[in-house]
């Protein structure tokens, strides 16, 4: 295990590369999910607002 982590003397370079890659991939996944959640969230208020606006016009007519 110690030998594996040492990477034949290239530990700093190899693990830095893999670490940055893991970080950027994870960041990408998080950002895409956040982007989707926000797009979905932006629709919700519009949907809930539609109903109270319609109701007063119905009451006026009765």
């Amino acid at each position: 295990m110690k030998e594996f982590l040492a990477m034949g003397g290239y530990a700093a370079y190899v693990w830095t590369s893999y670490g940055i890659t893991a970080f950027v991939v994870a960041l990408n996944v998080w950002l895409a999910q956040r982007r989707y959640r926000r797009a979905l969230g932006a629709l919700r208020p519009a949907g809930t607002q539609a109903e109270p606006v319609r109701q007063p016009t119905v009451r006026k007519m009765t």
Binding site: A32, R38, A39, L43
Partner: peptide, 23 residues
């Protein structure tokens, strides 16, 4: 795929199918 879904929701926010999706 995830980002395109989000883009479609943004661009189609007034479409009927999106309204049905949300409600």
């Amino acid at each position: 795929l995830k980002r395109v879904q989000a883009e479609i929701l943004d661009r189609e926010s007034r479409a009927r199918w999106v309204e049905q999706l949300v409600t």
